[in-house]
Design a protein around this nucleic acid. Structure first.
Length: 668
RNA sequence: GCCGCCUUAGCUCAGUCGGUCAGAGCGUCUCACUCGUAAUGAGAAGGUCAUCGGUUCGAUUCCGAUAGGCGGCUCCA
């Protein structure tokens, strides 16, 4: 009669003694419970309780519950694939955010038709109610059973060699012992299928309420491009049909907001093939948004004590030899142009050429500005700001709209300060960054602190510790969530990044604030201290938007194209009821323009209703409509984005309303 | 860079199992209509079916290469 502690679904603890051989399933008969947490670890419901256990139920609609559900669905996928493609070799099949995948080595990639038939087979397996049954095996037994599964054998081999840490994420062999999960027929108990897996799993396939295969794609075995490519099938699984439907609706919504689609629909930007992959042109409407974004940023930077600099797009290679970029970043750079070489009549070199590079980063040039003359401690902190356009040779497969481009403009600043000034500077910097992001309409943040990679770093442990602690303290003072990213820093210094959630809950990495121990050394940056000695400044890199293009894309998706008035390319469209009202609206438009408002009067020969539809589709914040009644009263009528209207508004009042929404930078 | 898929009018997309198959809607232009809150009607223009090469009596359709795009993988200092 083991004595155990049971936590019920309301969180209440209860001491109980249960008969020998009792299972978790008997304690939690509720069908929504898929696994149990036993003293902190997830276990199958078939787990036989032991003396002193603390058990709590894990419902399918919890984070952990969904993960188990998805992992079990991945097994169903693999079983279906092996039934339809008996020669398929199994890779790994873990749960991931919103779903799961399973990797297979097959003779030919899966087609959409394959996915349809696999999904159908999965439905049959789910319906048949196979039991997931756990079985501990020795390494030799596992090897014998999985003799025709080379990837599984490799994983078993890894378990022998690698540390638990490295395997922690591999569902197959991450546990304390090797286990195989058998899928048993609900009636006969015969084994239908099995897989090497640490579990846990849902009790039967019948409790998989809703799933869907999403797509197939290739993936390198164990994530290394040196390994063979496997075919990965992605799927999603949920605790109910409604939850699945909601997820699919979310994906649809995300697709509607895709900045590449909105960029075309709203005539904001394009990527002409003639220019090249990953190089955008901004059309007039996109250009207006961009200028509004930049102007406000400039204004705020000026207030915060930044000084504005400008640097060229091209430089001799020497600069990047000094900075070290050519040593460790040349793959990401456009190849050099060879200039100024001279040859004689025979073609022999008379004068060696110079290599010039497109710049991938602004910092080296800012350093040259710092060292253009002697610097005094009185000048520090020196904050150099630039909208600096950089070019990076992104691999062809990774270019993605405005968020991953080959040419983009950073809102880049470098701050040079003394060691003593660093805490205060980081503090005010973080506040500045977050306030500015809020002004653009993002207000849900968390921070991530990337710390030293123990293998790859420059600078003393002391410097790192102090900088990391300073960053941490500054981050904590913001009262936001702080996520640690151990070993995630670049080699030259620790980093804080600001992650922002958008309107539909997706997180984007926005600003980064990075301490740099490396470049001040390489550029031998110095200032004269109060005591007359030469000191090395601390350097802080920071970009707030990351890149303007990327931030543009984030805002576009965040607002689904419906920008707040201050950012909207067209803030007001004037719509006459008939042609006779055009002149009247033109007069109103002149006044609005004088007040700095971007207004267009739609004098096309479309019907008024069509003009409203057009303005609505262009997501214009305000429609100003005028007909006989308005003219007679010296008024206009508003139609807002939500379709509501306000009629007979005196012109002065209407102007004030629009101007007010711009000044307050509110969404309307 | 790797794997798979895709590329037909400015946009979104039909279509051809190789033979009057170059099509639609939106957009553009013209004309008529002058209208009170999401599509007025009629007409016109617009494509060497991404590019180059091959197979074939014949290719937009089949094959190959190239470019660009999409979804992943790797990468994102």
């Amino acid at each position: 009669m083991p004595q155990i502690t049971v936590r019920d679904q309301d969180g209440n603890l209860e001491e109980r003694s249960v008969p020998d051989g009792s299972t978790a399933a008997e304690l939690f008969p509720d069908r929504s419970v898929v696994v149990a947490r036993v003293s902190g670890e997830l276990k199958d419901l078939s787990y036989v309780v032991a003396q002193g256990d603390t058990l709590e139920p894990v419902a399918v609609d919890s984070e952990d519950g969904r993960s188990v559900l998805r992992h079990s669905t991945a097994h169903v996928l693999a079983q279906a694939v092996q039934q339809l493609f008996p020669e398929a070799k199994l890779g790994i099949g873990p749960p991931i955010r919103d779903g799961f995948y399973y990797d297979f080595d097959v003779a030919r990639p899966f087609t959409p038709d394959d996915l349809a038939s696999i999904e159908k087979r999965m439905q049959e397996i789910v319906k048949s109610g196979q039991r997931f049954s756990r079985r501990v095996v020795s390494e030799d037994e596992a090897r014998a059973e999985l003799a025709d599964q080379p990837y599984k054998l490799e994983l078993i081999g890894l378990k022998g060699g690698a540390s638990a840490d490295e395997l922690g994420d591999i569902m197959e062999v991450g546990g304390a012992e090797l286990t195989i999960y058998d899928n048993l027929d609900s009636k006969t108990g015969e084994r239908s299928w099995c897989d090497l897996c640490r579990g846990p799993h849902v009790p039967t396939t019948r409790v998989i309420p809703a799933f869907k295969l999403m797509r197939s794609a290739a993936a390198y075995w164990r994530g290394s491009e040196k390994n063979p490519m496997l075919q990965r099938i992605y799927g999603t699984a949920w605790e109910s049909r409604d939850a699945l439907k909601a997820h699919l609706a979310f994906l649809e919504e995300a697709e509607k907001r895709d900045h590449r689609r909105l960029g075309t629909e709203l005539d904001l930007f394009s990527f002409p093939d003639e220019i090249g992959s990953g190089l955008a042109v901004f059309h007039p409407k996109g250009g207006v948004v961009r200028r509004a974004m930049e102007d406000y940023s400039r204004q705020q930077h000026e207030r915060a004590g930044y000084e504005f600099v400008n640097t060229p797009h091209l430089t001799k290679g020497t600069l990047y030899e000094i900075s070290g970029h050519l040593d460790w970043y040349s793959e990401g750079m456009y190849p050099p142009m060879e200039l100024d070489a001279e040859y004689d009549a025979t073609g022999a070199l008379k004068r060696a050429g110079q290599k010039y590079y497109m710049k991938p980063m602004n910092c080296p040039m800012h350093n040259l500005i710092f060292s253009a003359r002697g610097r005094s401690y009185r000048e520090l902190p020196l904050r150099l700001f630039e909208f600096g356009t950089v070019y990076r040779y992104e691999k062809s497969g990774v270019v993605h709209g405005l968020t991953r481009a080959r040419g983009f403009t950073q809102d880049d600043a470098h701050i040079y300060c003394t060691v003593d000034q660093m805490p205060g500077e980081l503090d005010s910097l973080l506040t500045f960054v977050l306030d500015l992001l809020r002004d653009y309409g993002l207000d849900d943040f968390y921070l991530e602190l990337s710390t030293k990679d123990p293998v790859k770093f420059v600078g003393s442990d002391d410097d790192w510790d102090r900088a990391t602690e300073t960053l941490r303290a500054a981050a904590e003072r913001q009262g936001l969530g702080l996520v640690m990213d151990p070993g995630g820093a670049a080699f030259y210094g620790p980093k804080i990044s600001v992650q922002a959630k958008d309107a539909i809950g997706r997180t984007w990495q926005m600003s980064t604030i990075q301490v740099d121990f490396n470049l001040p050394e390489r550029f031998e940056l110095e200032y004269t201290a109060a005591d007359g000695t030469r000191q090395r400044p601390v350097m802080i890199h920071r970009a707030l938007f990351g890149s303007i293009e990327r931030f543009f894309a984030v805002l576009l998706e965040h607002y689904a194209g419906a920008f707040p008035t201050w950012l909207a390319p067209v803030q007001v469209v004037g719509i006459p009821i008939t042609d006779g009202h055009v002149d009247y609206l033109q007069d109103v438009a002149r006044e609005l323009r004088a007040a700095g408002i971007r207004i267009e009067v739609d004098s096309s020969d479309d019907r008024m209703q069509k003009k409203i539809r057009n303005a609505q589709k262009q997501k214009v914040p305000y429609m100003l409509i005028a007909g006989d009644e308005d003219v007679a009263n010296g008024a206009v009528s508003f139609r807002y984005r939500d379709g509501t209207q306000k009629n007979g508004v005196p012109i002065a009042e209407a102007i004030a309303e629009v101007v007010d929404s711009v000044v307050r930078r509110v969404q309307v």
